[in-house]
Design a protein around this nucleic acid. Structure first.
Lengths: 332, 332
DNA sequence: TAGTTTATCGCAAACCTTTGTGCAAATGTT
DNA sequence: AACATTTGCACAAAGGTTTGCGATAAACTA
């Protein structure tokens, strides 16, 4: 005789109307204390749980945030997701996690999923080649806030939470200047990525603005393997650089593998400086690598805060930036 | 005049009933070709999309899988999640990702969320101290399959997909024997974890079953930092071990940091062997670390297949194991 | 006493879709 | 021509909850 616990069920047992039961459970002032007591008691006994789907249908919303990223197997997104999940959980929301695989079509499908599920909001880091942002704006029309983070569109009127890409690179260049390094091998990422362009530009400008005579070789690597090759190539000869700068965690791993292979000692033989998302990769090595942190979890917290603002009505558009900071290790 | 695209809306425009429109869109044989054409045309024009919440309410299901893990910031769960997400996406399902933080109470909350959202199924790796599995069985009663993976309860009658924990350790011991190593420092994880116990037991048994005189030191580390300390402690003296065995990725990172610090050469000064979830950590080093793979993504694929079986009616209970295999690097 | 407020609760619509059943007209069968 | 079948569609209920409004009776005011 396991009858489903519904408002209707309770109402029939107690000879009340459905609406009265509903209001009683919500502690509505229209309902007498006596009735509330009875309703709550029975509800607790039969373990009543409101039907989420019915509520969603009624309210045309759900207590779920959509989160679309190119890949979740990535240090940065990883810490971002963790951080957002944590915050969301505390206010009773969950995360619908979707990978685009950096494929614009899948991204569109994912976006559609968010729409169909009437998610409360969407966090999205767009695929590399995504140009069309109309589909994203479409969500905004449905009252679903869209917060872009990290990989954001160039379109102005939308919410963007970014890392201080240029600033991090400038900071790195500054460290190199302060440490009085003269021969730098700088390895950046794929030249098509805007983050690469920004960092490369800022890095070069900062160094060239300085009177000191610094020899800088700028290179680009698409993967850790390529970074490894570059490291081997440029560090094998006698006049190897005194410093290697890496733009990302991934590149750093390639660089470090090369350094191990060449049996170079850090920092006596060669110095290393990198931009990283957190201390995980830098602390794998001895000495710990000095790096500029561009924190994924900080970004997550900020993005979440922005989302909350939106949900509570502060719907103005804003572009925010998470500052980066130097974390000293012993590699430079 | 942006009217919402609903069946009702279409039906009114076309002077048809809602049910006819519904059936037309589903290509029901009862509806004439002519009518279908008109309905589909209009539906396409006004971009009709069925309301997921309404369907969910009707069917008492949703096209979402719940996935509960202690933490997502973990190599293993990470690759597991990625793999399941990928498979799910291909059949039009999504993932509701929930972290328990290894806290039994939060785990219960998450479970409740899955229940309330009427997820299609749940993948769960339970928290360390979770003993009570009734709440999990409750989902089964609601026709929501529960697939336990990795950290599974000892209770018999449930679906479990595990790694071959003992087998991996046995395989490791076997490699050590084959390579004729004599002095082994073995670092396992927290002794309270069942995975530690299983691996430690299998490892010891395999080694002790062999007639060769092998000197083994079994130690335990709760973190990478502790593994680092153990490595420094046991390898500083002249009679250091000829081999270090590590039970996990995390421990391996600690060991490797110690080895770098001591400037030991691999494999001439010391050999290294580890059990790892994938090639990520082992390939960070030079030479690449030889390891026994216990693949998270393979586990994910298997768990997903099991879930699909359940959803298509093959509801028998089963315990499956993902085999582990040796991936040769150059560290032993 | 008549009119007004207050407390308590029910009615019914709305959210949108799916589906069993009923019904009329068109077609087919002898 | 009389009956049986098929075709094409509509009606209505069900799924569970929320909420504006109306209704009743008790308590209060003048």
């Amino acid at each position: 005789m396991k009858t489903k616990a519904t408002l209707k069920n309770i109402s029939e047992t107690l000879h009340l109307s459905i609406s009265t039961v509903s209001r009683a459970l919500k502690n509505h002032p229209d309902i007498s204390e006596e009735t509330k007591r009875k309703v709550m008691e029975l509800a607790s006994i039969i373990e009543y749980e409101p039907n989420t789907h019915a509520i969603n249908l009624r309210t045309n919303k759900s207590k779920i945030f959509g989160l679309i990223v190119p890949v979740i197997s990535n240090f940065f997104y990883h810490s971002f997701i963790s951080s957002v999940e944590e915050e969301a959980r505390q206010i009773g929301y969950s995360l619908l996690i979707l990978q685009s695989g950096n494929d614009t079509q899948i991204e569109l499908d994912n976006l559609k999923l968010c729409r169909l599920n009437r998610v409360a909001g969407v966090f999205v880091s767009i695929a590399t080649h995504t140009k069309e942002i109309k589909p994203f704006l479409k969500l905004d029309e449905l009252d679903i806030p869209v917060i872009f983070f990290d990989k954001v569109p160039s379109f102005e009127a939308c919410n963007k939470i970014c890392l201080a890409d240029a600033e991090a690179a400038t900071l790195a260049a500054q460290v190199i200047l302060e440490k009085n390094k003269k021969n730098v091998l700088a390895i950046f990422g794929n030249t098509e990525l805007s983050i690469t362009q920004k960092r490369q530009k800022a890095f070069s400008e900062k160094l060239s603005s300085h009177p000191a005579q610094i020899n800088v070789i700028i290179t680009n690597a698409d993967s850790a393997a390529e970074a490894l090759q570059l490291t081997l190539q440029f560090c094998s000869s006698q006049q190897r650089p005194d410093t290697i700068f890496s733009m990302s965690d991934e590149i750093l791993t390639g660089v470090m593998k090369g350094i191990q292979q060449l049996r170079l000692k850090i920092p006596s033989d060669i110095s290393v400086l990198s931009i990283c998302n957190n201390n995980f990769i830098p602390e794998l090595y001895d000495p710990v690598i000095t790096f500029i942190e561009t924190s994924g979890s900080d970004l997550g917290k900020l993005a979440f805060k922005r989302m909350m603002d939106h949900l509570s009505g502060k719907t103005f558009v804003q572009q925010l930036t998470v500052p980066s900071r130097l974390i000293e290790g012993g590699s430079i």
